[in-house]
């Protein structure tokens, strides 16, 4: 287990309940997490958690020149993912007809999504518009092929995990917790106005 976790972390993966349940349980034990952290510290890394502690990943112990170069490359990848992932999350709210966005652990059924998109031209157009992103280009313009491309790319980026290969059921991973936190950080620090959406979703205090 230890070896497997170290390998996953060094390969930049997020370990959550969905991606690897037993590894996640292992890391939730403070003693075991310490042993992993100690091992990583020998390599100049450390064990980090997402905001809501839904996933573990590896971070640098100290950000020196070499670490900065590496972080720059990881950040460039986040920049690439930002547009399509936001668009996907927004589209899923419309597809699933729900006013809350996806959370780690949520499931997405390929056939249900397909059905929803086929019955709604606006959604079909949105799906086609993913082709403007570099990694989502496809020679096949059919809805099925586009949706396959979208989900497989998100699977590759680690936001989804194929939970059932036969039924094509995907599950949202804990990496999304990191993404939301990053989005919140950008919104707060770059003063991006999200007022337009606030009019749409009104929530009163519950207690």
């Amino acid at each position: 287990m230890f070896e497997n976790i170290i390998k996953q972390l060094l390969q930049g993966e997020f370990i959550c309940e969905i991606s690897d349940e037993s590894a996640f349980q292992f890391l939730q034990d403070a003693g075991q997490a310490n042993t992993v952290d100690e091992f990583l510290s020998r390599l100049g890394y450390r064990l980090a958690k997402t905001q809501n502690e839904l996933a573990f990943y590896a971070a640098y112990q100290h950000i020196d020149h070499s670490a900065r170069t590496d972080i720059r490359k990881t950040f460039q990848q986040f920049r690439i993912e930002l547009y399509p992932v936001v668009e996907w999350l927004d589209m899923m709210m419309a597809c699933l007809n729900q006013d809350n966005s996806l959370s780690p652990g949520d499931t997405l059924s390929f056939s249900s999504l397909m059905q929803a998109i086929e019955q709604n031209q606006a959604l079909a157009d949105r799906l086609l518009s993913f082709a403007k992103f570099k990694d989502f280009a496809s020679s096949d313009d059919s809805i099925k092929a586009r949706l396959e491309k979208l989900l497989s790319m998100l699977n590759k980026w680690g936001y989804l995990k194929l939970a059932n290969r036969d039924m094509l059921i995907y599950q949202v991973t804990g990496k999304l917790d990191y993404f939301y936190h990053a989005l919140q950080f950008i919104q707060e620090h770059e003063q991006i106005s999200i007022e337009q959406a606030e009019d749409d979703v009104i929530q009163e205090s519950l207690l």
Partner: peptide
Amino acid sequence: QIEMRAQLVQGFAFFL
């Protein structure tokens, strides 16, 4: 948090 995330996603999507 779910509510806040929904606002964030919709707001960001609109902004983009």
